[in-house]
Design a protein around this nucleic acid. Structure first.
Length: 486
RNA sequence: CGGGGUGUAGCGUAGUCCGGUUAGCGCACCUGCUUUGGGAGCAGGGGGUCGCAGGUUCAAAUCCUGCCACCCCGACCA
């Protein structure tokens, strides 16, 4: 395990170093693909299980739809096609021929209709919804699936943007516009809770501008987060799809009073990108820093008994400490591998384990453990009889990490009253900027061109004429957050 | 696709301009001894079709031709 690049030297390199050195993931052989290694998968699993419970608790059911989508399905919703056409993996043949030890595609096996590897599942799900929805009694239909999707991206980065990624995608169908919009917003709250209470990541929530909206949505809400380099990461989205997919797939239902009515839709998702957010929001020069609630290992115990004194009693002590913690429901690991204590301290700090307990002869004799916190580096002595305090310390670390991140985001969010001021901030400090915007695509594009900052989301609407657009100076329609984004 | 690079052991590299011993070094790995409370030391050891194919030559990692792959910067994006 080599030393990682400092954040201040090269943040991108730091990010990659951390992922590779902590065994979260590795590169796959096909460009843009990623192997999620056991430590990374354990982290993902914890996030997934937490969110899955929240999704089920809000009345959604899990299901699984096919990976393969007929090409014609994607053509049915005009904007959806446009948005995804340029990044689809396409299956065109079904056979290979072995020739002198090499494989050739069999030209005779060409498929009549090409198959798309799903970049998202709206089309296939609405194809099925047509079969399932006929009456008001079938609504609302609230489905979620955990799946992999493929988007053939030009530039990829571990966890943030890979050709294939894991996610959950929720798809719901409703009888009214109001109900669908409420669902869209309810999900935003579910995501916000996941981020703030479990991942300890503060969020900014708002609507997307026309240009940034999901292909096929009438309205997109996004969860925006600030990384340690002050760049924004869109960490989750919830879309109000109106009747776009309902009408594209000809889904209608009969109401109580026997009318034929359109079906309203939502879709929403979060992905393995969350792991990237976790790394970049909390990590420091010593590596990962994982919030206790989702850390694969919450407490690592390092036995230190180099001289192998009193071995039996010593290891009984370690076992008793482990058992006490395990019985409390704490996820622990004892590192009794070979290697120096210093090496292990650094290794587990790098891996972001919230609490390290050092137990050597000193501690053994005084019936104590040395407790070191990953969030602030504090070392304290803890009596063996007070091990139950660990639970409370974990809770404290969790909230401390959230507060740190929140403070960081607030400190690096400002307002701008002129475009000159606006550009200066972006070129010198790279902060989030709250500013007024006239609501036009044109202005948004010009600002992006000149500063590389984009509208992350709309946080408020304006209807009096006193507020002016930061760029055009025309009457403002919205208060928005600008930032450079991943 | 436009611009710029790079391919030598698991990783990082020297050597290429100017062809010439057994392709060198660091990390990692293996063995042994000494160590072990903040990334241990010493000694020994294993691992290479020098991206691929062809050519020039007594001799090619090095020169020539062709191909392939990957990386960085731009448009796309959970």
């Amino acid at each position: 395990m080599a030393k990682i690049t400092k954040q201040s030297e090269n943040f991108s390199k730091w990010y990659t170093d951390v992922i590779l050195d902590t065994d979260l993931a590795d590169y796959g052989p096909v460009k843009g693909t990623m192997v999620v290694k056991p430590y990374g998968f354990a982290l993902w699993t914890n996030i997934r299980d937490t969110l899955n419970k929240m999704i089920e608790d809000t009345g959604h059911e899990n299901a699984y739809f096919p990976l393969f989508i007929p090409k014609s399905f994607l053509e049915k919703e005009a904007k959806h096609v446009e948005g995804f056409a340029k990044e689809c993996a396409v299956v065109t043949h079904s056979k290979l021929i072995a020739e002198d030890g090499s494989l050739q595609v069999d030209p005779n096996s060409r498929l009549e209709e090409e198959i798309i590897v799903r970049p998202t599942s709206e089309t296939i799900i609405w194809h099925m919804f047509k079969k399932w929805i006929t009456s008001y009694r079938d609504l609302p239909l609230k489905i979620n699936q955990w799946a992999n999707v493929v988007r053939w991206e030009m530039r990829t980065r571990l966890f943030l943007r890979t050709s294939e990624f894991l996610w959950q995608e929720g798809h719901t169908a409703h009888a009214t516009k109001e109900e669908a919009m409420q669902e869209t917003l309810d999900i935003v709250e579910v995501y916000r809770t996941l981020f703030e209470e479990y991942l300890a990541i503060p969020t900014i929530v708002g609507r997307k501008s026309n240009l940034e909206r999901f292909a096929g949505a009438d309205e997109t809400f996004s969860i925006e987060t600030m990384m340690r380099d002050k760049k924004a990461l869109q960490a989750g989205t919830s879309h109000y799809l109106g009747t776009n997919f309902g009408s594209a797939f000809d889904v209608k239902f009969q109401s109580k009073d026997n009318k034929e009515l359109p079906v309203y839709a939502t879709s929403w998702g979060v992905s393995t990108r969350m792991v990237g957010a976790l790394i970049m929001v909390h990590g420091d020069d010593n590596g990962l820093k994982l919030p206790p609630k989702i850390a694969p290992t919450q407490v690592v115990i390092i036995p230190i008994n180099s001289k192998k004194e009193n071995e039996t009693k010593f290891s009984e002590n370690i076992q008793s400490i482990s058992k006490t913690l395990r019985d409390m429901g704490v996820r622990i690991k004892v590192d009794d591998s070979e290697g120096s204590p210093g090496y292990k301290f650094n290794k587990w700090e790098l891996k972001g384990v919230p609490i390290r307990l050092e137990v050597g002869m000193k501690e053994f004799e005084s019936k104590q453990v040395t407790l070191c916190r990953r969030d602030n580096g504090e070392k304290t002595q803890l009596n063996i009889d007070s091990l139950k305090d660990v639970q409370e310390i974990l809770t404290n670390i969790q909230s401390n990490m959230f507060n740190d991140a929140k403070q960081f985001m607030e400190k690096n969010t400002c307002t701008a009253d002129s475009f000159e001021n606006f550009s200066n901030i972006l070129s010198s400090e790279n902060k989030f900027i709250k500013a007024y915007w006239d609501g036009s695509d044109e202005t948004e594009l010009k600002i992006k061109e000149e500063t590389k900052a984009t509208i992350r989301c709309i946080i408020d609407d304006v209807d009096d004429n006193t507020k002016k657009c930061i760029y055009s100076n025309k009457p403002a329609k919205h208060l928005v957050v600008f930032a450079k984004a991943y």
